[in-house]
Design a protein around this nucleic acid. Sequence first.
DNA 1: CATAAAACTATGCAACTGTATAAAACTATG
DNA 2: CATAGTTTTATACAGTTGCATAGTTTTATG
Lengths: 212, 212
Amino acid sequence: MSLAEITLSDRNERGNGLIEATLTCIAEEGISNATVRKIANYAGVSNGLIRFYFKTKDGIIQAAYQRFLERIFNAAYEAMEEREGEPVERLRTFLGANLSPPIVTPEMVLLWANFLPLTYQDARMTEIREQWYNMTTRSLRELIREALAAEQRVVSDRELRHLSMAINGMIDGLWIEGALSTDKLVTQELREVGLNTAAKILGLESLSVERS
Amino acid sequence: MSLAEITLSDRNERGNGLIEATLTCIAEEGISNATVRKIANYAGVSNGLIRFYFKTKDGIIQAAYQRFLERIFNAAYEAMEEREGEPVERLRTFLGANLSPPIVTPEMVLLWANFLPLTYQDARMTEIREQWYNMTTRSLRELIREALAAEQRVVSDRELRHLSMAINGMIDGLWIEGALSTDKLVTQELREVGLNTAAKILGLESLSVERS
DNA sequence: CATAAAACTATGCAACTGTATAAAACTATG
DNA sequence: CATAGTTTTATACAGTTGCATAGTTTTATG
């Protein structure tokens, strides 16, 4: 490892810490209370240091948003990729991951809600949201197409788009409902309801979960 | 009309204006930028006047949140109530209203996202959210129960809860997806996708929409 | 019209905001 | 060890924040 890499690594480590501190601060205190001084406190450094790693406050917020969306997407995508060659299993894994921790937690939904309004005020934030939204949508559509094809079903582009919209919407809705609900039944049965409903929407009996 | 009522009405009118100004300000500039001075500007009054109608800034934010949730619920509920005695039609109307303007607009979703984090920091905001969430959930569950009963189908409490969760989640998810999407196809086909999917979930062919 | 209450404005204050900058501490290298 | 570069702190600044308060205008009533 060259020296240049070491300092780069140190630099990234501190930068990472600041980004994580930003996410924690926003989740716990809300974006309105996430000031540079509070973020610095969470990271255990003086407030001036933030400017050494990020040019502006907007900069660190954007970096934190990117990290947040990346983490959600990867959690589902990596779980899915482990299943090779079994289209229905891949879809089931992808949906299941989106309906379980660490994606389904109050912290995640809070972060999502705190960031969302910024994507209407800051062009860079809009770009970041659209980038990851497109990746998720495309992945889901492809998974559905392949799962249906595995059962010898071919659907039109229009129908595929509608199915994808419905499933995507239901996943997002259950994600929010589950994370916000104080009712433990809701969070426990979330995965079951989501998979069974997806099975009904797609007409894929093989996707659904047996009752316990 | 007695004088007491006139002054009360005037007072409410100004209070209304301030609440509306708060909602507009939050939707356009985000909760972080919704200061008492900006809100006063939107309402066309001096900043000091807000304190005459609301004890604290939290107070006017809470009042605005209440108004916001009330408006969403009423838009769907009143549309539904017009259909008497036809359970499936009532359900269809309720779902359709939740998938159309004025509920499905970027402004509404933005307001929702801006308020949500506050319900984790302010106990009163939590109460307000839970109050309206319970009303919506109960209404939807009852509508589903009656629509199924009209087709001679009786479901267990557990099954009804699951169906309600799934439909509610899908509606919320499509609501967000539709309002945030810049793709016009999405917003146009939202209602159709939502109703057809609800039909699939409930197994109620009579709920679905014919293709145009 | 007089006058008291209600509605509204103007201004001030301490605390806090993002940012700039200079000084300090630390680290690697000759 | 010296010294140049990097990382970190401390402090200062102008602008903004929620809130308080005193004063002004408007409105209702005898």
